[in-house]
Nucleic acid binder design. Structure first.
Lengths: 254, 254
DNA sequence: ACGAGCGTTGCAAGTTGTGCAACGCGGTAG
DNA sequence: CTACCGCGTTGCACAACTTGCAACGCTCGT
């Protein structure tokens, strides 16, 4: 791995926490200021960092644009979107679509609740991986070895009393989820919010994404939300069918 | 500027166009495959690229998460959002918020139209800089020198017959916009879509962002849309006031 | 079973990145 | 008003890091 690039890339997560001046960046990297300067300059030329009027650096616009393109290239997303909208129209709650990638689960699409009380979440935000219903589905489908490895490395923050407390409990939960083919999060992340989720599978049966419906207690009880499970599963299956139906690859090696 | 980092960063826009294999990346960079491999590996370790099952590389999840954080750090956005929502509730049309940064204008927030016919756009997407109403406002406020430089370097694609045809016309338009303090795009990007926009200013009077209301002809005529101008300007002014009112800086050098 | 294509590895050569020290500038304190 | 301090910036010599090469292993297609 390349040291220079490694250092340069390390700057980005740093700036994500907020703007920083040259000295702070150099310190954080453990390099000389002149070195940090040159790295920042290179990042700047590519538009990945932006120098604001007070001379401090923050993340740049190109980064946002790139991420946008990255998401638009996800085939599942495109196929799933109309289904998510339809589901939202019939139940009114927030609908999420998420994928797993390299130890992270993140939302790649969302349709907002039509109720005034909405849950907070944002496309692109990594989800609470140890409790979210969609995360359970995605992790449950990983091959045994990788699943164990990932689960062991996770932190288990107790967002609420119902959060998954530790790796063992999580593995058990994942086994159950895998068995039944759907998952829930009943107040494990936010005390008053429940979710039901179902997996979206590719042609080979592997889970490629997961979708969920979320609603706060004040709108519907957990039991009421669970009555939506069949609908959620049917939607997920419809997406699976469409996704695995035609080849997801659009380019040919011409 | 660092050559290695420069090359590594060049890979990202490349992958944004779609997944690519090692050979293609190496060719595009004009370097040996082994070099490209090492760069990709470094990018991979940071989660900026992801290696899919067919071994090809595509943009990774961390990129999306980072961009998300980048946007959440934009102060204007946070302040403006509730105002945008309120504006949308009172007129029903699509509302956009955009900023200028380094030769690009991009949407950083959006509230969807409540009409069934919606215009296409996405947060994070660079806007058609030569025709969009928000772009005119943002460019019109640049210092003379920089404005000329930017305008000269732009391309002027004729999206429609009403698109800005060349730099001279654009400079004239920018002068007008600067004078009147608001801008429009009447079918300059999509034949049937019109926008009215107003600037959001910081404490020093400089334009820090711009907001617009957009609607297709089939919903309201251009004239009808123009009647919303006072409301749009009032909203923009309200955001300006709130933005310049208190210090946007939240951190202290502890 | 054989060959072609692709990703991967170790190595030697030298290009490139690095840290140092010194400079210029702006703001602050005396 | 001046002197100082902090910060970003530059040029340079050294050496570390990256680079391209060539050879290997693998999978896929014939």
């Amino acid at each position: 791995m390349s040291q220079t690039v490694d250092r340069a890339l390390s700057i980005l997560p740093l700036l994500a926490e907020g703007p920083a001046d040259l000295g702070r960046v150099a310190d954080a990297l453990g390099v000389h200021k002149s070195t940090a300067l040159r790295l920042l300059r290179t990042l700047h030329e590519h538009g990945f960092v932006y120098r604001q009027s007070d001379q401090r650096y923050r993340l740049g616009a190109r980064l946002i644009a790139l991420a946008q393109e990255a998401m638009e290239n996800l085939d599942v997303r495109e196929i799933a979107h109309p289904h998510l909208v339809r589901l939202n129209e019939s139940c009114g709650h927030t609908v999420h679509l998420a994928v797993y990638e390299e130890n992270e689960v993140l939302y790649i699409d969302k349709v907002e609740s039509r109720y005034p009380v909405r849950m907070y979440s944002r496309i692109g935000k990594p989800v609470a991986i140890t409790v979210a219903a969609v995360a359970k589905l995605l992790l449950a489908d990983l091959p045994e070895g990788e699943r164990r490895a990932v689960v062991e490395k996770l932190d288990y923050p107790m967002y609420t009393a119902r959060s998954t407390p530790h790796a063992d409990a999580f593995l058990k939960e994942l086994a159950t989820v895998r068995e039944q083919g759907w998952a829930t999060d009943l107040g494990g992340h936010e005390e008053s919010i429940n979710c039901v989720a179902a997996p979206i599978r590719g042609a080979d049966g592997r889970v490629v994404a997961a979708m969920s419906v979320s609603a706060p207690n004040v709108v519907v009880t957990a039991d009421e939300l669970l009555t939506l499970l069949p609908l959620v599963r049917r939607t997920a299956d419809a997406i699976s069918g469409e996704y695995s139906g035609r080849t997801p690859v659009k380019e040919v090696t011409a």
